[in-house]
Simulated scan of single mutants.
Amino acid sequence: MIRVLLVDDHRIVRQGLRQVLADVPDIEVVGDAGDGAQALSQVRSLVCTPEGLQVVMLDIAMPGRDGLEVLKLIKAEFPRLAVLMLSTYPDRQFAVRCLRAGAAGYLHKSADPDDMVAALRKAAAGGRYITPSVAELLATSISEPHDHAPHEALSQREHQVFRLLAQGHSVGQIAQSLSLSSNTVSTYRARILEKTGTRNDVELALYAVRQQMVEP
């Protein structure tokens, strides 16, 4: 039996995933979480049970600690636990970054249910589920290591702040959301503007739209 933990900040998404997996005989959803803190707490509890935990299905876009940060925390503490990333973002924005951080696969939330089941089974078996589009991105990242968009040079935390700024959040709102000081967020903002070659939040938002990192 493949025991799965669902992590997404939208209850309706978690309910939808439960329904998709409910009739799969070898998969059991053993818990769900709405944010990173809940996810880490449940992972620690479930891996200690006799049956264990085989796969975490983890959303990328969550308040506070985003999915990428939670992924790294999970892999640091439980390196053998498979984590399958879910997202509504285009593959090219996050897939390679997730796989490099240790994810067992990257799936769009609109993926066919059969593909989700196949991904869970592959991850539980210790493999990586790679779609053709993600495989192409991986090949490109290897063959053209220096041909990257400016935002790909951002650190994980800078990337997190970047997306929040591009979505219209203020420095104060971001500081509160990420449990950081406003000065720290302002420092991240300055680095982001420099690395992306933008001069203000408006240009940063336009850059994000061009790169398909946020909805226009």
Rank of each mutant, 00 (worst) to 15 (best):
residue 177 S to C: 04
residue 96 V to R: 08
residue 145 P to I: 04
residue 16 G to H: 09
residue 45 S to H: 14
residue 199 R to T: 14
residue 194 E to S: 13
residue 200 N to M: 08
residue 11 R to A: 15
residue 111 A to D: 10
residue 190 A to N: 10
residue 147 D to S: 11
residue 177 S to I: 02
residue 103 A to L: 04
residue 194 E to H: 14
residue 181 S to M: 05
residue 169 H to F: 13
residue 22 A to T: 09
residue 84 L to F: 11
residue 158 E to S: 06
residue 8 D to A: 05
residue 140 T to A: 15
residue 70 V to L: 03
residue 23 D to P: 00
residue 107 L to G: 12
residue 37 A to V: 15
residue 80 R to I: 00
residue 166 A to W: 04
residue 9 D to K: 13
residue 117 V to T: 06
residue 133 S to E: 14
residue 49 T to H: 08
residue 90 P to I: 06
residue 62 M to L: 02
residue 53 L to G: 04
residue 186 S to K: 11
residue 165 L to I: 08
residue 169 H to K: 15
residue 109 K to Q: 13
residue 145 P to W: 07
residue 96 V to Y: 07
residue 188 Y to V: 01
residue 75 K to P: 03
residue 186 S to N: 11
residue 172 G to A: 13
residue 63 P to R: 06
residue 65 R to C: 10
residue 80 R to D: 12
residue 128 R to E: 14
residue 178 L to Y: 01
residue 50 P to H: 11
residue 150 P to W: 03
residue 15 Q to I: 07
residue 208 A to L: 09
residue 187 T to G: 14
residue 10 H to T: 09
residue 31 G to D: 09
residue 142 I to T: 13
residue 151 H to E: 08
residue 75 K to C: 01
residue 38 Q to K: 09
residue 11 R to P: 10
residue 140 T to H: 13
residue 90 P to S: 02
residue 99 L to W: 03
residue 152 E to Q: 13
residue 53 L to V: 07
residue 184 T to W: 01
residue 207 Y to L: 09
residue 113 P to K: 04
residue 184 T to H: 02
residue 214 V to E: 13
residue 21 L to M: 07
residue 50 P to N: 08
residue 154 L to Q: 07
residue 124 A to Y: 07
residue 90 P to C: 05
residue 79 P to C: 03
residue 57 M to I: 11
residue 17 L to K: 04
residue 16 G to I: 08
residue 66 D to G: 11
residue 189 R to A: 03
residue 181 S to L: 06
residue 136 E to H: 12
residue 124 A to D: 08
residue 161 V to F: 05
residue 206 L to Y: 11
residue 181 S to Q: 07
residue 75 K to N: 01
residue 130 I to L: 15
residue 80 R to T: 06
residue 125 A to W: 10
residue 54 Q to N: 15
residue 194 E to N: 13
residue 57 M to S: 14
residue 191 R to E: 08
residue 61 A to M: 14
residue 209 V to Y: 10
residue 183 N to Y: 09
residue 215 E to Q: 13
residue 193 L to P: 02
residue 68 L to C: 07
residue 33 A to W: 14
residue 41 S to C: 03
residue 82 A to Y: 08
residue 83 V to I: 04
residue 98 C to E: 07
residue 8 D to V: 01
residue 193 L to C: 07
residue 104 A to H: 00
residue 113 P to F: 05
residue 101 A to I: 10
residue 138 L to I: 06
residue 169 H to E: 09
residue 130 I to S: 14
residue 187 T to N: 10
residue 11 R to V: 14
residue 190 A to W: 00
residue 206 L to W: 09
residue 25 P to K: 03
